[in-house]
Design a protein around this nucleic acid. Structure first.
Lengths: 340, 340
DNA sequence: AGCTGGCACTCGCACGATGTGAGTGCCAGG
DNA sequence: CCTGGCACTCACATCGTGCGAGTGCCAGCT
């Protein structure tokens, strides 16, 4: 149906439209690319491409612009991965040096991704399901409040404050020792059972403080770090001031809905493992984002923590470069997390 | 110079312009407010107000709009604090219930503030200079990496990972005990001296791991939690799609510069203590934000942690309501932090 | 002295007509 | 199957026009 030349034409249309932001006509197409045919021929090809739904003309007597379907074909079959510039390579390989903790790594990653793609970046916290519990810390803060800190072998530190009746330092120390002796070195899933058992045959003296603390710990074990996301590069939206309704507003609205972002990333990552996934326009599961595209990739390994990162931007974006950048950042962050 | 009626006229102009977004003329002014004079009289007053720089007309035959100076006079002398609606009161007083930790409190606060003001909200983490050190935790993660956690009496938990040579669990335990015995219960400022002393006469066996750990601890003590800010309500910018250049773009650009936000809040809060501060247009220290206004207030107490929160929006905003909301949120968060 | 009604004037803006040009579809010939 | 030619279409920019909201000023009234 679509011979090579027609594919070339589509590729040229996408490329030109992405860079010029304007509908592209047959004449300029032939000029700017080395197509060895006449505009009239190209016009015939374009008519076919339009019939097949890969391109449309915004109005009669205007050039063509790619449809979501056109971008999809472009991404699947026509895009050649654009190698990163040396400056980008350098930026990526130095950006994470000196990161202090996981929060810092996530923050740096999202800024890096936003910078190299010039889009809005989203990074999900890695989930390390195989982590062991390293330490449970219990600290009295005031007479009736305490702080629970849970430290895992993957280096995550989670904290909660809770109210306790009659906190005596001695009881706290006992409970801390008890918890640690039962929990250290075991996996969170096993810890849940262990804690439940512990709660029932708890020393009577410890029960008043032990019960709420165990409840909080169970809650902490249930909550997954990977339901956290960080967002960056929002100022990059300023470049799209002209397409306020189709790009800026939907992204702004989605950004503060963590749930939306998580499902977006999750859905995108679930398809192909370790490769860059692209969701173009209407392919997105969320209606408000159907005028935008998502480029995402999972990163990390199951043992060191695995999650997804990506960018959101207008459907008219430079897919080859963006995909290359997202892939490079994902790989680098994965490597960085593995090395530590 | 400005008699009561001229002030009334200015007040009416500000009120009308804020709600209608359109230059306001003498006739509609007289109609919509109970001014007991004729449009001609109002026109004379407006001429004077314009001469004094409180209002301008965008073009010769249009109504007047307030200048920054006009808004300033309005805020200082004319605005009557608009009482909060019952719904707002309810929202404010329930929003923080069930907060899990400080991060959660900050996150909820920024969302609350963004919601009640319908603007972009900024909340600075509270600084609790008088906090005591409650606990130092040191956990080996892999053979050559360890995690340092610093817990203070104000409930803040700070964590860092670092690389260590030859980590033996025994040495780690020794060092942990040593650090805690020296640090627990003392203020961060004193801890700095104590750590420096500790570093010099450290047991030779502990020195290889003790030195880097102490360095990290000193760094953690030096870093202040109050240099963290959270931002929320960015989607509210979508309402200002028409004023993209004067409102959306500047705010977007400022948002990701934590330094800018911190200086902005710091400068605003430093003026009057515990009251709402307003920076209108050119009064802002940052050029890019000179088409926007900042409404801020400090919150909390020195002992429980003190910081600043506020909102950024267009100069044409409903100052009375916004100021009331900011003040209410600041007070409520302060109270919440004090109660725990 | 201050307020008011009247009046001429200004000028941004919405509206409609016009012309231009980029781009198209189609067709006959190579 | 490609190509040059040609008639056709329309979005858009340009220009002119009329309207009306709003103004400044002035003479007269209180």
């Amino acid at each position: 149906m679509l011979d090579d030349r027609k594919l070339d034409v589509l590729k040229a249309i996408v490329t030109d439209y992405v860079s010029s932001k304007e509908p592209v006509g047959s004449k300029s197409l032939v000029e700017r690319h080395g197509l060895r045919v006449s505009p009239a021929t190209v016009r015939n090809d374009m008519a076919v491409l339009e019939e097949e739904g890969y391109i449309v003309q915004p109005h009669t007597s205007a050039g063509r612009i790619p449809t979501d379907k056109g971008y999809r074909l472009f991404v699947d079959r026509l895009a050649t991965v654009k190698p990163l510039s040396p400056a980008e390579r350098r930026a990526i390989s130095t950006f994470l040096a000196g990161a202090i903790d996981l929060d810092d790594v996530m923050g740096r990653t999202v800024r890096l991704l936003a910078q190299v793609t010039s889009q809005v970046a989203i990074v999900q916290y890695p989930a390390a399901p195989a982590a062991q519990i390293r330490h449970v810390e219990l600290v009295g803060l005031t007479t009736d409040r305490a702080l629970v800190v849970l430290i895992t072998s993957s280096g995550t530190v989670e904290q909660r404050t809770l109210e306790l009746p009659h906190v005596s330092d001695d009881h706290i120390a006992q409970l801390r020792a008890l918890l640690n002796s039962h929990l250290i070195g075991i996996a969170p899933s096993a810890a849940v059972d262990r804690l439940a058992a512990l709660a029932t045959d708890l020393d009577l003296a410890l029960r008043p403080i032990g019960t709420p603390v165990i409840a909080v710990l169970l809650d902490m074990l249930a909550s997954d770090a990977s339901d956290r996301v960080v967002v960056g590069g929002v100022p990059n939206l300023a470049r799209f001031g002209d397409q306020f309704e189709t790009t800026v507003r939907p992204v702004l609205e989605a950004l503060e809905e963590n749930v939306v972002l998580l499902r977006l990333l999750g859905e995108a990552a679930s398809s192909v493992d370790g490769e860059v996934t692209v969701r173009i326009g209407h392919e997105n599961p969320y209606e408000t984002l159907q005028t935008t595209s998502l480029v995402a990739s999972s990163y990390g390994t199951v043992s060191d923590g695995r999650a997804t990162l990506g960018i959101v931007g207008p459907t008219r974006m430079d897919y080859p470069s963006t995909m290359a950048s997202v892939r490079a950042v994902a790989r680098y962050v994965g490597r960085f997390l593995a090395e530590g």
